[in-house]
């Protein structure tokens, strides 16, 4: 087959993406630059001038960054454990990671509201282990939200890293060792750089999902916890203010792209460091 011939296979996907993603995005952008009278930057002026908007934006950003960090810290070693596991164990671990994905986010978020209640499983475990005497307030706190959201998005960090680890030739670490690199040097200079593509994929997935998360914060924190997503929803649905909603949408998009882009650049740097 010629190159051109193969290229045609991508046409349906391109058309689909154009219609479903690019077009609405363009409309969103137009909407954010318009009010009843005509073209204006007022939407952005109002948004950036409002302390409340800044508060919502930094809160959203903090939530997404913390979620992503927690997922990296827990998911990176977990991906190694998964890659090292043999036979049945590996199959079990993968199943444990994949099965929750078949549940709706709403179900999982409700699950966490039950687990995080003052007489829920989490508090009972904490008290039984002697870590706390009285039940901790977890539900409707940011800690509880982070526990829940990180748990729900964890598979999206573990799986890409796991699939990259599996492709690393084990002889590369042998080679590093014979060249005089102790286990730590070998790990930081060979294994970590080679897992970077997986980390970037994981960060992209988890960050862009958690910055845009709507259901989980709403269920675990209630309506008063406003994020960019909930702002978009309230603007469109209750306030009938499409300009404000569109501006929040554009801000959300720009933040996602910036952070994901930064993670790509950072990962390239780590990868190329000798």
């Amino acid at each position: 087959m010629t190159r051109l011939g193969i290229g045609w296979l991508a046409v349906p996907a391109c058309v689909f993406c154009l219609l479903v993603f690019a077009l609405p995005l363009a409309l969103l952008l137009l909407e954010s630059l318009r009010d009843g009278q005509g073209w204006t930057l007022d939407g952005y002026r109002n948004f950036l001038g409002s302390a409340y908007s800044w508060q919502v934006t930094t809160r959203t950003l903090r939530l997404a960054v913390l979620t992503t960090l927690i997922c990296i810290i827990i998911g990176y070693p977990a991906a190694f454990a998964l890659a090292r596991a043999r036979g049945v164990w590996q199959a079990l671990f993968v199943a444990a990671l994949l099965l929750p994905l078949s549940l709706s986010v709403i179900v999982k978020a409700f699950g966490w509201t039950v687990l995080l209640r003052s007489n829920g499983v989490v508090n009972r475990l904490l008290m039984a282990s002697g870590l706390t005497d009285a039940p901790m307030r977890l539900i409707f706190t940011e800690t509880g939200l982070l526990i829940g959201i990180a748990n729900i998005f964890l598979p999206f960090m573990v799986l890409p890293i796991f699939s990259v680890i599996r492709q690393i030739d084990p002889r590369l670490t042998d080679a590093a060792a014979t060249l005089g690199a102790g286990p730590i040097h070998g790990f930081t200079r060979v294994v970590v750089p080679l897992t970077m593509p997986g980390v970037v994929a994981g960060v992209t997935l988890v960050f862009s999902m958690s910055i845009a998360a709507y259901v989980i914060p709403t269920l675990l924190m209630g309506d008063r916890y406003q994020t960019l997503s909930t702002t978009i929803a309230t603007s469109f649905l209750y306030l009938q203010d499409p300009q404000r909603g569109s501006v929040a949408g554009v801000v959300l998009l720009v933040l996602s792209l910036l952070v994901v882009g930064a993670s790509v650049v950072l990962a390239r740097k780590v990868r190329a460091t000798p």
């Binding site: 030739d169 590093a176 014979t178 005089g180 102790g182 060979v190 750089p193 990868r271 190329a272």
Partner: peptide, 21 residues
């Protein structure tokens, strides 16, 4: 351990570090 032996190895199919120049 291998990193203290001072023995060089040329591996079958080389095992060069693909991320480095």
């Amino acid at each position: 351990p291998p990193h203290r032996r001072n023995i060089g190895v040329v591996f079958q199919n080389y095992a060069l570090f693909p991320h480095l120049t």
